[in-house]
């Protein structure tokens, strides 16, 4: 049996070169284009997905290493696009060009799962690897703060 990978709840055979980064497996093989190519070197965060819940740069992660792993991309973050972060992004009208925002949201989602009550500095540290060239950082920070508040309400 070929190696397989679970992406957004669905199983796929890893039928490409093991060295192919997950990013290109997603984009060119499966034609799931929500995960973006920004730098190809793990420098900008545009390609961030979750591997077993942990924010991971898909552009430098060989797909062959991910056999039996569970991957979540922006398309699978929530059923209805209603993750508290997605709602907070809409409330704050965060995106400008929007190209980096899938990576921003995925990175923030993984971060909030480990730190549900972050300080402003902790948000900065967690989001430092995600570049937004349009300059939406102020709104991203605000949206993460709001989403954390909502998530805390859901938990309690």
């Amino acid at each position: 049996m070929d190696k397989s990978i679970t992406i957004n709840g669905k199983q796929y055979a890893i039928d490409v070169d093991n060295d192919m980064p997950l990013l290109w497996f997603l984009r060119d093989r499966l034609e799931k284009t929500g995960t973006k190519f920004g730098c190809g070197a793990g420098l900008c965060g545009a390609c961030t997905v979750h591997v077993d819940g942990v924010a991971t740069r898909a552009c430098i992660t060989p797909v062959g290493m991910l056999a039996d792993k569970v991957i979540t991309t922006i398309e699978g973050l929530s059923e209805e696009g209603d993750h508290p972060l997605q709602k907070a992004w809409l409330n704050n009208n965060v995106p400008q060009c929007g190209y980096c925002q899938a990576g921003q949201i995925m990175n923030a989602a993984s971060f909030l799962a480990t730190n549900p009550t972050p300080s402003a500095d902790e948000i900065d540290n967690a989001m430092q690897g995600n570049i937004c060239r349009c300059g939406t950082y102020q709104r991203i920070k605000k949206a993460i703060g709001e989403a954390a508040f909502e998530l805390a309400k859901e938990v309690s």
């Binding site: 060119d28 034609e31 284009t33 929500g34 995960t35 973006k36 190519f37 991309t73 922006i74 398309e75 973050l77 696009g81 997605q86 992004w89 809409l90 009208n93 965060v94 995106p95 929007g98 190209y99 925002q101 899938a102 949201i105």
Partner: peptide, 27 residues
């Protein structure tokens, strides 16, 4: 006014120049 396309952006469905796909496409 909120942008018309934000709900597409936050679920990864907004299509950029880099995203076009079609049968027979080569890279």
């Amino acid at each position: 006014l909120p942008r018309h396309d934000q709900s597409q952006v936050v679920v990864g469905q907004r299509i950029y120049g880099v995203d076009t796909k079609m049968p027979g496409l080569k890279y």
